[in-house]
Simulated assay, not measured.
Amino acid sequence: MDAYVDLRLLPDPEFPQPLLMNALFAKFHRGLVAHGEGRIGISFPEVDARRPSLGACLRLHGGAGELSAFLGSGWLAGMADHLAVGQVAPVPPGAGHCLVRRVQAKSSPERLRRRLMRRKGIGEAEAAEAIPDASARRLDLPYLTLRSASTGQQFRLFIEHLPAQAGASPGAFSAYGLSPTATLPWF
């Protein structure tokens, strides 16, 4: 991860910024699936966990050649009016490292109980004891709203930026540009 490029959303009176970020990320995901996942990671340098908001900038991280090839593959078609694409640039010296990962919320306790009853062949009372209502967890993390290509259902992709750390951790990135182990330069 020696290079990066910023994709910045431009203000638009017709479309709110979160809607544009959802569209940009959906295109990024499809482009990454076609290009080959594992070598490009993402971060949101303007993330604000207090609001929660991902901001207006999507930063791609990778090797300079890899990023240039990816940007040249045409996955950004249709976003030109809504986006300012920066130049591929080297990571500044002294940058920290940050883990940017997906966080999945546990489903509703009711759904989990039905699933447990089907899988284990147990009754409602036993399932309620195994999965209490208190097991539901609400996430206060920024998220993107995406549509599954396989099921057509909408879902929220919750994204967590962990605090910056001094050292880098290796690993691969998913088709969302996220990793449970690999860090990215943070600046």
Rank of each mutant, 00 (worst) to 15 (best):
V91D: 09
R50A: 15
S68P: 05
E124H: 04
F28H: 12
G62W: 05
A105L: 05
A128G: 05
M79G: 11
V103L: 03
A125P: 07
E66L: 13
A49W: 08
L146Q: 02
L141M: 06
I40T: 05
I131S: 03
F44Q: 08
P93K: 01
E129A: 13
H161G: 04
F25T: 13
G63M: 08
S135N: 08
L32G: 11
A134M: 05
P52K: 01
P132R: 10
L99P: 14
R137A: 11
A77S: 11
E126D: 04
L141P: 00
A125G: 10
L32H: 15
V88G: 09
Y143E: 11
I159E: 10
S108W: 03
R138T: 04
E126S: 09
A127G: 01
H82C: 03
Q153V: 03
W75P: 14
G167E: 15
G86K: 10
E160H: 09
E160L: 02
R115Y: 08
P163E: 07
H61P: 13
G63K: 09
Y143N: 11
L139Y: 02
Q154E: 10
L76Q: 09
R30S: 03
G63R: 08
P90T: 10
A130C: 07
Q153Y: 12
L60I: 01
V33L: 14
R101M: 06
L162S: 11
A49T: 11
L60R: 00
E110L: 06
R51W: 11
A168G: 08
A80I: 06
M117G: 01
L71M: 08
S148K: 14
